[in-house]
Write a protein that binds this DNA or RNA. Sequence first.
DNA 1: ACCCTATTGATTTTT
DNA 2: TCAATAGGGT
Length: 688
Amino acid sequence: MSLSKISPSNRKAEFGSLENIYDCIDTRESILFNSGAGAGKTYALIESLKYVIRNYDKPLKKHNRNIICITYTNVATNEVKERLGNTDLVLISTIHERIWTLIKDYRRELVQIHKEKLIEEISSLERIVGNGKEYELYRKLEDKEKQHFTEIMIENRELFYQNINVKAADFRLAFQKLLNDFSNLLSNISNFRKTVSAIYKIDNYNKCLENIKLKKPKYNKVEYNSIYNSDQLHRMRISHDTLLDYGLKIIDKYDLLKQIIIDKYPFIFIDEYQDTNEKVVLIMNKLDKYSKKIGRNIFIGYFGDSAQNIYDEGVGNKILEIHSDLKEINKEFNRRSTKEVIEVINKIRNDNIVQVSIYDDCDGGSVKFYKGSSENVRDFIDKYVLEWQVSLKNPLHCLVLTNKIVAEYSGFINIYDVFASTDIYKGFNYSQLNTELLSKDLSKLGEVPRLLFNIVKLYNDVSKDTTPVIQLSPNEYFLNEMNFLELKKLIRLLKECKGSTLGEYIKSIATVYNKTNDNNFKKIIEWTFGIENISPESIRNFIIEKLFPNLLEDDIEHANTTSQKLLDIKIDEFELWYKFILDKEEKKEIYHTYHGTKGREFENVVIILENAFGRNKNYFNFFFDNLNNFDTLELKDKQTFEKIKNLLYVSCSRAIKNLRILYIDDISNFESGIKGIFGEIYSFGNNS
DNA sequence: ACCCTATTGATTTTT
DNA sequence: TCAATAGGGT
């Protein structure tokens, strides 16, 4: 077995970097702990938390104080909780949850900040309408005409939203009569939509301000709910970014709040600092500086790696400009990968952190770079499934760029495509699709995906005899009440439901449901579907209603065929999807997006690389092309370069032992850049 | 054939 | 939001 022997001197050196942190904790000197991929950053974080618990337990408890630990994702929160063990001294959560608990009781102050935000938004919208080219036609109207037009549009909101996704010609048709006096405004529909949206927003915000002023119920508090991805300011609802915004504002504004936080939470730890929002760092900086001003002590520890900053919002290496006077501690050991992998990832990051393995027995891995084409991808993966003798327990992990490709290779592209063609997920809401259909955080599932999840769960649980019956039930109490005979009858009924497609399965369930008088069965089915009237039609209507809100007569056919397509998909495909989001795939090769692998590690990794990413047709080739002339690039290009570098670094550093890269575009223009990092370039497939 | 404008369709990730 | 394309006008 390799990667197991640590020499005493390395062990001592590693402990040394921990001791550096401990010293800073004792002197309350805030730190920036930087370590490369696989350095055991989370380990250092956990050990630091344990150190604080060990040494400050009594005084903290005596004054009812806590340690705060902030992570970037819910998954990471759970991991830290698990690894740290049970303690009520440390409050572990995501930044959003923490900030919200800190500020939510300051209702009046939040409403005040909300009012200021609304006023700010109104004037910013008015500025945009006053200057933007898209609003020119509206701007040219006389004041009276503007008012008239605004009145018409506000009266016909529903019609507007019904037509929000229709093609330009149909949109024009829908509004032609209504806007006879303003037909020139309809010359460009996208501009028209933009203008009207701005008008609606301004109107909403003004009405909201009015309601706050009149002290109407529901307008006396601001709400944050993590399932919304965007603000609904006029409904007093804020989303993730605005929460941080309000947090920063309220902490900036009220010294008393700063003091309370400093008093109650003298130790704050932040995991993956590089991807946390700038505003969080601004908040921490304010707390740090204020604590010094009033002569208190607070320790803030940032743990992360600026070379792994892959999200645009993340603060990255700007952190030192925002939060000054941080003591930097670097850790250069790698406790994840073989030396062959480490050598390559060091070349990618190419900065002051040059990792060495902590293990004496760190060889035995391999890295190879192949050129090929998109037709070769399957063969390439198959080759390594065989060659590396991967198993269900130790599968091959394949990194691709988009969720769509993940869905395709994982075997549920039909599901993905059907959802992508529905009204609520196409166009503007496209990004919502990945959240609501593919998120492994089940609380994020959309309404229809949740319904499908429940149905497939039932199917899966019933077909597997090993599933404890208890899991089928809405609550344990209800099943505990059942006697053996009832239980047997229930299981028999559940097994009667069959079908090879989703539609057939639903039909079969509905048939049994309407035939039987077994209340236990009925309860389970009602709980699964979340509705009381169970019939193929009612389920179908539910799906259509949710996927096509504001349905127009003309589009009913499209909605019908789309929902039929969904119902015609094989249950087997839904099972693949179900196991994918549960992270319980029973396959020898498992697909991820590059971004989705953050913080994880796999023994064998294949990366499918290409030029394009998102809208950018020249992404990864841009990186390899400019490896040697980074200094000559413009600022913006430099930032792009760093982002690509970080993404490549994150993906390649997931590998523990073996790493293969297949580049599926022509690389002849930047071969030397690739060779500089990966060494020899091999050919795969027939285009050599 | 060319120019300009309008329309359409495509995208990573997290809270 | 933005780039590619379709379409209309000359």
